[in-house]
């Protein structure tokens, strides 16, 4: 595939997904095109294939997507509920950092009226693990753990270890709410007894879209590309090999690094289409 053909294809993906209407579209489009121009023909095809299944949820879509996730519950599950406590999905060591989960509190507070199924329910917000430990959950109360995106489930499991220390919190009284979640992680959570309210379920970018032998070939090809992405080793195919294809307000490291880390060719660096502001 020639560069000009790849540029035409990426523009069609942008149009199909209405990405040209997004705020940072210029940077993303230029990033994609420069990258496609510098890749080898078969690498271009792989990048386009992945981009075709990519989700780009910008900040201004959070409200609608999160409200949609909250509403994805049957009303009978809420009939007896009087109070819901919200807690962000964070690791204990990240407690004092600003995280996306806490930002979602703002949306929940501001747009509770849009969550029509919860009209009769009082919302409370827990911000620290100390508050979580002190919580005595009554039978007509629930705990909702919230985040914008759940990737490999690593952060969730750390958070859950803390939740488990409070004996009044049983899995049946806990729900997980997020805008997007990886399919296999969701399956694990459900098997552990946690109901998940979400808007988007993501498949693994290569593994779940290809036959096994083809998937292996494509992963090898992706690892070849990653040889030209400095610092990509710990996040090869995305952190924990999540193979995620998503950009939220920020791109999670579960996403293939080609989308968010600088690519290097012949000593020249190319900005990633969805560069993270802290990536150099």
């Amino acid at each position: 595939m020639e560069a000009i053909e790849a540029i035409l294809s990426i523009n069609r993906i942008f149009k199909k997904n209405k990405w040209h209407e997004k705020d940072a579209q210029d940077l993303a489009m230029e990033g994609f095109c420069r990258l496609l121009d510098s890749l080898e023909p078969e690498q271009r095809i792989l990048l386009l294939e992945l981009t075709n299944n990519y989700q780009w949820i910008s900040h201004d879509e959070y409200r609608d997507k999160f409200v949609q996730a909250m509403e994805a519950i049957s009303e009978d599950q809420l009939t007896d509920v009087k109070k819901i406590h919200f807690f962000p999905i964070i690791k204990p060591e990240d407690e004092n950092k600003v995280k996306s989960g806490e930002h979602l509190f703002y949306i929940i507070k501001s747009f509770k009226r849009l969550m029509t199924k919860y009209n009769h329910i009082q919302f409370e917000y827990l911000k620290t693990f100390d508050q979580l430990q002190a919580l005595k959950l009554e039978s007509e109360e629930r705990l909702f753990l919230v985040d914008d995106y759940i990737g490999s489930g690593d952060t969730f499991n750390h958070c859950l270890t803390e939740v488990a220390k409070n004996s009044s919190l049983s899995s049946s009284a806990i729900k997980v709410v997020c805008i997007a979640i990886q399919e296999d992680t969701q399956l694990n959570l459900v098997l552990e007894g946690y109901a998940v309210l979400k808007t988007i379920v993501l498949k693994k970018g290569i593994t779940d879209y290809n036959e096994r032998a083809v998937a292996e070939e494509k992963k090898t090809l992706m690892r070849e590309i990653e040889r030209n992405i400095p610092g990509s080793k710990p996040v090869s195919l995305g952190y924990n090999e999540t193979e995620a294809l998503i950009t939220m307000a920020r791109t999670p490291d579960n996403t293939f690094p080609i989308f968010w880390k600088k690519f290097r060719k012949e000593g020249k660096y190319f900005d990633a289409p969805f560069a993270r502001y802290d990536e150099q």
Binding site: L8, N11, D26, M29, E30, C33
Partner: peptide
């Protein structure tokens, strides 16, 4: 030309 213009131009 921007890349977007190049793409639109090709279309």
């Amino acid at each position: 030309l921007s890349f977007r213009q190049i793409a639109e131009f090709t279309e």
